[in-house]
């Protein structure tokens, strides 16, 4: 679904990413981890079509990415909700901007799915951080994207909410698998969710190692089998900084 071919990106004299080759399958969940400043966010923005690569090619569904696509959605670290819009209107925003017609039924279903039924008319500031991020998740699902790009979506949340949301995301991905690129600096989150984990090394960001996670699903945080993978990832991240 996503194909990166020898992708590099520089910002002036700074080499953010270099020589990135990566294929992401149609139903594959790929996590990207690495130290801050290793170009994780740049990688997402390149796939999203918000940035152009300095060299190399990026394909989504076989077409070269030259601008943002309507079947690709992006989710941020902050909920990035519009404070003047109700929960429902926030979820409907992509449908509105993309001109997709009436998506109210689907919006209600999605809000139901993340346990926010009954909150449709509330304004974002009336919700907790975790609830806001759930709304943001619904918003990124409303256009039924084929590719979801997630930029540390749970990192601003407290530990408990974070766990809940990663488990919800796992459930959603199991019920309706799609291509996901999930940037995180949480090893546990990556091991819980991903089919493959890309470890980036910093300056310039390169792929240091790709780890396959073949454990059966659903997985649960704290499961002993996950610990082994986590340990080896920790080792890899140690190499990266050394």
């Amino acid at each position: 679904m996503i194909s990166l071919q020898r992708v590099a990106r520089t910002f002036g004299p700074v080499h953010a990413l270099a020589g990135i080759d990566l294929e992401v399958g149609e139903h594959e969940f790929v996590a990207v981890i690495g130290r801050s400043g290793c170009g994780k966010s740049t990688l997402l923005r390149l796939i999203a079509g918000l940035l152009a690569p300095t060299s190399g090619r990026i394909l989504v569904a076989g077409q070269e990415v030259t601008r943002p696509r309507r079947d690709v959605s992006l989710m941020f670290q902050r909920p990035a909700l519009l404070p003047w819009r109700s929960v429902l209107a926030n979820v409907l925003l992509p449908a509105e901007v993309l001109g997709l017609g009436d998506h109210r039924v689907r919006a209600h279903e999605l809000l139901d799915l993340v346990g926010l039924a009954g909150f449709e008319k509330r304004l974002p500031h009336e919700l907790s951080g975790g609830m806001q991020q759930r709304v943001s998740l619904c918003r990124s699902l409303i256009q039924s994207p084929r590719v979801m790009l997630m930029d540390e979506p749970f990192s601003a949340l407290d530990a408990i909410t974070r766990t809940e949301l990663s488990e919800e995301l796992q459930r959603i991905q199991l019920e309706h698998p799609r291509a996901v690129v999930f940037v995180t600096h949480s090893i546990d989150e990556a091991v819980l969710l991903a089919d493959r984990i890309v470890v980036l090394s910093p300056r310039p960001g390169r792929i240091h190692e790709i780890v396959d996670v073949t454990l059966p699903r659903p997985r649960a945080l704290g499961q002993v089998e996950l610990d082994e993978v986590s340990r080896s990832l920790r080792g890899l991240l140690g190499e990266v900084t050394a």
Binding site: R45, A48, G49, L50, R67, P68, R69, R70, V72, S73, L74, F76, Q77, R78, A80, L82, W84, L93, P94, E96, V97, L98
Partner: peptide, 23 residues
């Protein structure tokens, strides 16, 4: 991030102005 959200939806300038910036 709000501007980026609109850009990622390939929103027109009109949308960016009247659905986001002015509000």
């Amino acid at each position: 991030d709000l501007v980026e959200l609109f850009r990622s939806l390939d929103a027109s300038r009109t949308h960016e102005f009247f659905k986001l910036r002015l509000w």
